[in-house]
Amino acid sequence: MTDSISTTQSLSRESGVELDLLAREERITPVPLWRVRVKLWWRSARQNAAIFADNKIGLLGLAIILLFGVMALAHPILMATVWDARTYDPITGYSFDELRQPAPPSARHLLGTDPLGRDVLSQLMYSTRNEFILGLLAALITVTIATTIGATTAYFGGVYDMIFMRVADLIIMTPAISLLIVMCALFNPDLPQLAVVIGILSGFGGTTIIIKSQALSIRVKPFIEAAKVAGGGHRHIIMTHILPNLLPFSFLYMMFGVTAAIFSEATLSFFGLLNVRMSWGIMIFTAQAAGYLLSGVEYWWLLIPAGASITLLCSAFYLVGRALDEVVNPRLRKR
């Protein structure tokens, strides 16, 4: 029988010698392994960046995030150089040049002043940093908890799985905002504390279930069985096979988590429940407390900058998340 496969020839040539087919003197890989790995990682990062860049909406989101990042970084520089602390400090400043507070936008105050005579643009830029810290910290805690629990519950199942899933059900059933309001009224947390609470609530709640469902679809793949047959223990399988396939999704839900955290913070600040001196929510709260909430058209600079910033930054993270979804989820790609 004719067999065109070249294997036969190569096998017959090396007959008799078991597993010693290559000359020892030539190293198989001329470069060290880690350098190859870095190269591979770099190559896949470049490919993913190209897919991401194809998505114009994602780029828009990224641009908005970068814009806010520049704002956050520019504030301390401006305070140190151009802006006088007595006039422009976001919390203690007072604009003595204006006759009436709140003053409409002018060359001196690009976004006007608030009812207490403070510069709105300075407040806006000062708050941006806090929003970033809160959003990213809360999202990081969320996905750390959710990925750990999701991967392990999907892998082990049984009672362990049931406990965490019932906890998640409980958290999903509880309306998060009202729970946060009660909690803030009782404990008056500051931003990092709030980030931890939001992170824990979301991490044990909805995000866990989403990530676990992803982990379940990985857990039934034959390569998990293959790893078991290879002799891999639970830790090896979770760390080498489940987590690397899960992390892109974790990163994706981190983006969505930022949105949720910023939104919760704005809501709580608006009710004056947070131990925070300045934030976008507090800017709206100040306008509301001084009675300007219902004359939003006339005194637009009190409401629109903060409101638009919350909307823009939240949607920017969401848009980036959607674009990342396309990167980690090949079925969603248009090509």
Binding site: S6, T7, S10, L11, L19, L22, R24, R27, I28, T29
Partner: peptide
């Protein structure tokens, strides 16, 4: 590395 390359050669994936 060497063992893996040998195996790849053995199953006909050359050059490993």
């Amino acid at each position: 590395e060497e063992r893996v390359a040998e195996m790849l050669a053995l199953v006909g994936l050359t050059p490993p």
